[in-house]
Design a binder for these strands. Structure first.
Lengths: 316, 316
DNA sequence: TTGAAAGCGCTAACAT
DNA sequence: ATGTTAGCGCTTTCAA
């Protein structure tokens, strides 16, 4: 019994001869260890919970792929739950994951709302936020420097002479926007002595909303937009072109995620480049260390970003 | 002990008064049942394994969302594993899932290769294929009638006068192509007395491959393409336009999945419409019945499809 | 309607 | 290096 356990778990205190014998029987009987029993006895499930707003969102899907690949590499499985960024669903999902005794959690969300924070703090199981900011920087997380990225990209829009640049995000009041992107956007404007008007802040979180937003943009005499979501950016670009306002000639669009979509639209979309897969991968790698009780010096990691000027802006 | 178990599991043989008492203590002690112990004792984990080629593929991501929503509805959790459609990874993933004692499996793959089939048959745990064909129709599965869908869409390409219509898929030799789509394509050609030449069969499974394929297409004097993957279709369309061959004027493109991408490209892509979310949802619903030992009359389900003519074809 | 007891299939401490 | 034993935290008979 115990010896079989040792062999199966690659414990070293087994005589090679008996190991062979056990292996032979394991094969012959087609024995497969029961992970549930293992989990109960060892208090480790080699399973991590992943909360994602929506798998069909290509930004998060890219992170999820990075997460799963590294999880697999470290022999963990992933329990994936879509939350739609909804507080209720997030809390419910967390409770389910706790019941399932997951060894750790990767949380992705637009926002870290108080109820979720409480839930996360209540258990002492490791959590890492992936592509999701924690304004208090309390939890380990991996992101890029959204503020600097937006700042730089807006600089490009400024450089080509735009006087009224809009900032567009799914929900302006989310921490990632309120505390990082918008300050980056405003800092860029201020540095050029441009007024910072809230009337230039708009909401659009997907293609259709972006497309529909064009009327508002035109009404406000906006000539360029810094968008925080690739699909919304595509919607704005197509919407403008369909209204006879050509991009980038009469209107410039810059976006944030560098998903494959930015290469598939016409014109192609200028964007901030983020290592999406790596954000997920690094988050998972960090979580493995935490689950392994290793000491981690840097629990807040910022991955490098870049800017890619393509067809939707005039900048070269 | 046993009474608490009854209360937690909503067993009816409990006096309301004691139920209240138990509930009160549960709350006070912040008691949360351990699903692992539950799983060991009851031999049910309320977890299903989901094998997906790649979450970042929007076709499969859409199915995954449908799967997760229904799973959640029936109180199941999902263990998600990316396989890249690789036989080795699929087999490995299945074994891991079996060890984890999942109650059922949803399999998505480009192909149901022999090794996987063997693995699936070896265990008697329920499996449902989602958006993935089983040429032998041995396993429960939910799909659309790919053959008819392609046949109809090719008819439209024929109607606008094309004499050399290409068929493009990720891998021509996959069952879904070999046994369903290509026969549909060929039947449409044959019905119009058009020769069925293998030189009109091409491979491209993503945007870049589609884009690169254009040279071959031009070389072969192709004037229209029936593509089995939206991203590849976008690549072909952009590739043609970039080469000065305008779509749909000089080249028509029709695709298969109706992912959101088909509305985001310019021109927009004409496509077969499939209820992607529903394919996943119905598959999961079917699996719940199977896991519940309910008798299911129809284990092979074909969901309705449609055709949507947009900007990449001349047909109205 | 409730309690007592066995046991799910392992791991881990302990003994040998 | 191997065997023995005691749980892990529940569900599920079986009695009462």
């Amino acid at each position: 019994m115990a010896t079989v356990s040792r062999v199966v778990n690659h414990n070293h205190n087994v005589k090679p001869a008996t190991e062979q014998k056990v292996m032979e029987v394991v094969k012959r009987l087609n024995y497969r260890p029961n992970d549930v029993a293992r989990g109960l006895a060892s208090k480790k499930t080699t399973t991590v919970g992943v909360i994602i707003p929506n798998v069909t969102n290509s930004y998060f899907a890219a992170l999820a792929r990075g997460i799963d690949d590294i999880a697999e590499m470290y022999q963990y499985n992933i329990i994936l739950t879509n939350s739609d960024g909804d507080e209720q669903k997030e809390v419910k999902a967390l409770n389910t994951l706790y019941s399932k005794q997951v060894d750790g959690i990767i949380f992705m969300g637009h926002e870290l709302c108080p109820a979720v924070r409480v839930e996360l703090e209540a258990e002492r199981i490791p959590v890492v936020l992936a592509g999701s900011v924690d304004p208090d920087n309390e939890f380990p997380n991996v992101n890029i420097d959204y503020q600097a990225a937006v700042h730089n990209q807006v600089n490009n829009l400024l450089a080509s002479g735009n006087q009224r640049i809009a900032f567009v995000a799914g929900e302006l009041n989310r921490s990632i926007n309120r505390d990082f992107r918008i300050p980056g956007y405003q800092a860029a404007l201020s540095a050029q002595q441009q007024p910072v008007a809230t009337e230039l802040l708009f909401e659009a979180g997907n293609y259709d909303e972006g497309y529909a937003l064009c009327d508002d943009l035109v009404k406000n005499r906006v000539t360029a937009a810094m968008v925080s979501n690739d699909e919304a950016a595509a919607g704005i670009m197509n919407g403008m072109n369909d209204r006879g306002i050509t991009v980038p000639g009469q209107f410039e669009v810059a976006t944030s995620d560098n998903t494959k979509l930015t290469e598939m639209t016409r014109p192609t979309l200028s964007t901030i480049t983020q290592p999406l897969y790596d954000v997920g991968a690094v988050a998972m790698r960090l979580l493995t260390k935490l689950m392994d009780n290793q000491v981690v010096e840097q629990k807040q990691v910022l991955l490098p970003f870049g800017l890619k000027q393509r067809g939707s802006t005039k900048a070269s």
